[in-house]
Design a protein around this nucleic acid. Structure first.
Length: 232
DNA sequence: GCGACAG
DNA sequence: ATCTTGTCGC
């Protein structure tokens, strides 16, 4: 979908899309999605997955898996052009969309406010949150060393996101709104998604699921989960 | 088992 | 993003 885009064209599209960003709270949340991509090094096949959990219980209810071919290279700041097409393809497989989706990338915590989470949200028109393991942009400040501690990430007085400590003595994760939610609500939601691991449940489970898919242990398509998955 | 930090 | 071996600490 974006394979022929030059970096110049990609930059222009990001600037264009960022004008559509809207920040408003999600009214009621009973389900939350987690999305992730996995691929083999030097392969053009992307394995995309979205898991759906009950909120705030964090119980896996269903998941969707799909593959997508792309040759767009990894370029910091332009990851969306590699991943978004695959995400849209899995997204289409889901009959009952979750109220909000968490992606393991940045949202508006991005030089042009167009991280993958924001990019995906603009195209899917669904509320999203970015929850990345590493910061891409902005003034990094570390939160205090206790669970739920936060620090604001800013860029020339703009609030771009938060560093959130999900576990004591572990590096924080970086939370930012994608689109159709607010910075404060994104942070609040992510705090409610923290289990016993550094990575909050939606993206943690999405990562495990999509890896199992890449390794041939799960099948393509949409699947409902009626009992706890023992695969992990 | 899990995560930070090698490399 | 993935793979691989190992150490230390909790």
């Amino acid at each position: 979908m974006y394979d022929h885009y030059s970096i110049q064209q990609a930059t222009a599209l990001q600037v264009e899309l960022s004008k559509q960003l809207k920040f408003q709270p999600v009214e009621k949340i009973t389900t939350i999605g987690g999305a992730d991509i996995s691929f083999n090094k030097n392969s053009s096949t992307m394995y995309a997955g979205i898991v759906i959990l009950s909120y705030p219980e964090m119980v896996l209810k269903s998941y969707a898996l799909a593959t997508y071919e792309t040759n767009f290279p990894y370029e910091p700041g332009f990851l969306g052009f590699k991943e978004v097409s695959a995400l849209l393809k899995v997204w289409d497989l889901i009959p009952d969309k979750p109220d909000v989706v968490v992606l393991d990338v940045n949202g508006i915590l991005h030089p042009r406010r167009m991280g993958v989470a924001s990019h995906f949200c603009i195209l899917s028109n669904q509320p999203t949150i970015g929850c990345a393991k590493k910061i891409l942009y902005g003034d990094n400040h570390l939160p205090a060393n206790y669970k739920y501690a936060t620090a604001e990430i800013t860029s020339s007085s703009d609030l771009l996101g938060f560093a959130l400590r999900t576990k004591e003595k572990c590096k924080p994760v970086y939370v930012s709104a994608g689109h159709l939610t607010t910075q404060a609500q994104s942070l609040e939601i992510m705090k409610n998604c923290i289990g016993n691991y550094r990575i909050p449940e939606p993206t943690r489970i999405a990562h495990e699921t999509v890896n199992a898919f890449r390794l041939g242990k799960l099948k393509i398509g949409y699947h409902e989960v009626n009992q706890p998955l023992t695969l992990f």
